[in-house]
């Protein structure tokens, strides 16, 4: 709905002001603002510009602590500034502002030498989402034994709403843990700190009661989670995961070995509370 004609002046003022703030550009706004005894119109505007950058950066720092640790304050704040400029907030809730940050990191040229940062950002964002996710009871092994009896092969299960899976080309879980330390530095040339050449890891983030958990998961766990997410029953999920891992991955010695791993993966999911009943 377009504003009433008499509101045009008010609309134009707000439009110019908010775009001016995001671009850090006073040109179109200056004529709207009074000079005062102590400050020019530009200086008045700069107070709002500075406080907006401060608020947004503080919010991103709080939501992406491991990215902050990986990059250090200065680099992080510069990155945040570019993100703010290029991804204006489209939501009234500041907490949601970081949603596009991981993919922004992926495409950000100055991060070329830190290709793992966007994956670390994804883990941070998933942590934040899990923290605020819906309170839903998870399914545990005992629930299936006690309540469901023999029918458990066909019960409908889905992912617990707190669950995220982050696939990475890097040892992501180790990286994420490593960046818990302040001033951690990741350097593939420096054996003393951290090696990016270690095997790739898949990370799962979820919540047990009110505790957000992060761990690395095996391929079979990941395959089962994916199948449940697509609406499979346990029987179907096993079949699909088996097929996929056996054909695509070709890394298992025997069908029995893979079946054993899948059964271990199933136990893991029921122990950690990564599933819910649909």
């Amino acid at each position: 709905m377009s504003p009433k004609p008499e509101s045009n002046a008010l609309n134009a003022l707000q439009d110019k002001f908010i775009h001016g703030l995001y671009q850090g550009e006073i040109a179109n706004v200056e004529a709207l603002i009074c000079d005062s005894n102590k400050l020019s119109a530009t200086q008045h505007f700069d107070i709002y510009h500075g406080s907006m950058l401060g608020n947004f950066t503080a919010s991103l720092r709080a939501v992406f602590p491991r990215v902050l640790a990986a990059l250090g304050d200065q680099f992080f704040d510069a990155l945040a500034r570019q993100y703010i400029k290029n991804h204006p907030s489209k939501t009234p809730i500041l907490d949601d502002f970081g949603e596009g940050f991981p993919s922004f990191c992926e495409g950000f040229k100055p991060l070329h030498d830190y290709p793992y940062v966007s994956d670390v950002a994804s883990v941070d964002w998933s942590w934040h989402q899990a923290f605020h996710s819906c309170d839903v009871s998870a399914v545990f092994a005992a629930d299936l034994q006690n309540v469901l009896g023999v029918d458990q092969a066909n019960i409908q299960l889905g992912l617990h709403p707190s669950v995220s899976i982050i696939r990475s080309d890097f040892p992501l879980y180790s990286l994420w843990q490593f960046n818990e330390q302040e001033n951690a530095s990741v350097d593939s040339n420096n054996g003393a700190s951290f090696s990016l050449d270690a095997p790739a890891e898949i990370v799962m983030v979820w919540r047990q009661d009110y505790q957000v958990c992060v761990t690395s998961i095996s391929l079979p766990v990941c395959a089962l989670l994916t199948a449940f997410d697509e609406g499979c029953s346990p029987t179907q999920a096993f079949e699909r995961a088996f097929e996929q891992l056996w054909l695509e991955q070709k890394m298992y010695d025997s069908e029995e070995a893979l079946a054993a791993e899948l059964s271990e993966a199933w136990s893991f999911l029921l122990k950690q509370g990564a599933l819910k009943r649909l």
Binding site: Q14, I18, H19, S51, M52, N55, S89, K90, P92
Partner: peptide, 12 residues
Amino acid sequence: TSASGLHGHDLF
């Protein structure tokens, strides 16, 4: 706090 679909999260 917002205009033209953009949110400033500050009290203007």
